[in-house]
Write a protein that binds this DNA or RNA. Structure first.
Lengths: 154, 154
DNA sequence: TTTGCTATTGCAACATGTTGCGGGCTCTGC
DNA sequence: GCAGAGCCCGCAACATGTTGCAATAGCAAA
């Protein structure tokens, strides 16, 4: 593990955004609790997307007393801090994008059940189409678009 | 409104696709029950989109003994018959499109909370982008895309 | 260290869907 | 119009989220 400099100004290269969570919370008059620590630890172990229920399960492994409402509330907080983003899978269930580096959408194939990310170039076409035709600023990351992939056409 | 070209055979003028439901069910060895009749009656009164819970509530008004599981199961059946299509609203809750004349997507504005339909021309751009770049056949009707409308930009 | 403010937790209840099961009802064949 | 076959219903239990409330516990000031 890296040493933890906890710089208040800019982050030294190599530091993880998670290291600052405690301070960022306290700076806002919020609190650093064992339950929040547990969730952060779990999130550090993941990348990409995780369902809410998977996160709850992992938290329970570390702390048997974990309750779902606390996890959901903490995730809301982390979303406000920009550390996660929530979206909905093809079936409407919640999914969390961890440390979203860039906004990207998702495709779900009803044939094979796989999920793909929409590459920025492709996403840009969609965003642009809705922006120019309707003046609508799309947040592609919120939903999973369904359909059939190239390998599953009829 | 356009006439509805859904069925392969022609529909006599004035006839509603709902009139054929009973026969179409029986033709498949399925049954025409009071619970199904109630739901059909409710669906006839609606157009466009309805949430599942709204349908359940309306069914309960007509028949106090309505149970949710029956409604959901019947809606699944009707979806197989092509009379409704389900999708997910911006919050992941189920929504049903009644008598979908053409596939269309939906936009939800997180600012004002309104929902718009994506016009076929606009939808075509999106479908085309994903088809040509990824070979992915999008079903736009399944999800509600979130964002901010022209009136709600910052 | 102690004290006090109040953010946070865990519980309980609720909302929305899903699923397995036993008994009842629809339909068909006679 | 009766009886048999099996589709369907309602129930109960569960899965996933959300919300209100009283009690707890973080944090900072004294």
């Amino acid at each position: 593990m890296l040493p933890n400099p906890t710089a208040s100004a800019e982050v030294a290269s190599g530091a993880s955004p998670w290291d600052q969570v405690a301070d960022r919370l306290r700076a806002g008059g919020l609190r650093w609790t064992p339950q929040r620590r547990t969730l952060i630890e779990v999130l550090r172990e993941h990348e990409g997307h995780v369902t809410a229920s998977a996160l709850i399960a992992r938290c329970k492994e570390r702390d048997r007393t974990t309750t779902p409402s606390t996890v959901y509330r903490t995730l809301d907080l982390l979303e406000e801090l920009g550390l996660v983003r929530h979206g909905h899978g093809h079936d409407g269930r919640e999914e969390y994008h961890i440390l979203p580096d860039q906004v990207h959408g998702h495709l779900y194939c009803g044939g094979c059940g796989k999920t793909w990310e929409i590459r920025p170039e492709t996403g840009a076409v969609i965003v642009e189409a809705l922006a120019s035709q309707l003046g609508f600023a799309v947040d592609l990351s919120h939903v999973t678009i369904s359909g059939r992939c190239a390998g599953c056409h009829d």
